[in-house]
Simulated scan of single mutants.
Amino acid sequence: MLRCSDQSLYTGYTNDLEKRLSKHLAGKASKYTRARLPVEMVYYEIFETKSEAMSREAKIKQFSKNEKEDLVVSFKTSKIV
């Protein structure tokens, strides 16, 4: 999940986080993020299959903004340890 400069959150899936983030930062990955640069990666999950990743992406996209923000907070907290 990326936080855009307007504080909105963008959710997507990829098989290469670093490459995808670089494309977003260069304005070449998504029309949505291109108009909201810069972006910052604030949350991610790792899955074994593309199908699992796409299923989770679809579920997260249905979350409210508050639910997405809760994921981000819990992710930051878990990375501090």
Rank of each mutant, 00 (worst) to 15 (best):
L2V: 06
L2A: 02
R3K: 10
C4N: 05
C4P: 00
C4L: 09
S5L: 06
Q7C: 11
S8T: 15
S8H: 09
S8P: 04
S8N: 15
L9I: 12
Y10V: 01
Y10R: 00
T11C: 12
Y13T: 08
T14D: 04
T14C: 10
N15H: 11
E18G: 07
R20D: 02
S22P: 00
L25S: 04
A26Y: 03
G27E: 02
K28G: 01
S30E: 02
K31G: 08
T33D: 00
R34H: 09
L37F: 09
L37V: 08
M41W: 03
Y43C: 06
Y44S: 09
E45K: 10
E45Q: 12
I46W: 05
F47M: 07
E48C: 07
S51Q: 09
S51I: 07
A53M: 08
M54E: 14
M54A: 07
S55C: 08
R56F: 03
E57P: 02
I60R: 00
K61N: 11
K61G: 11
K61V: 10
Q62K: 13
Q62L: 14
S64I: 10
S64N: 14
N66I: 13
N66H: 11
N66F: 13
E67L: 09
E67H: 12
K68M: 14
E69K: 15
S74N: 11
F75V: 09
F75H: 15
K76H: 12
S78A: 13
K79D: 07
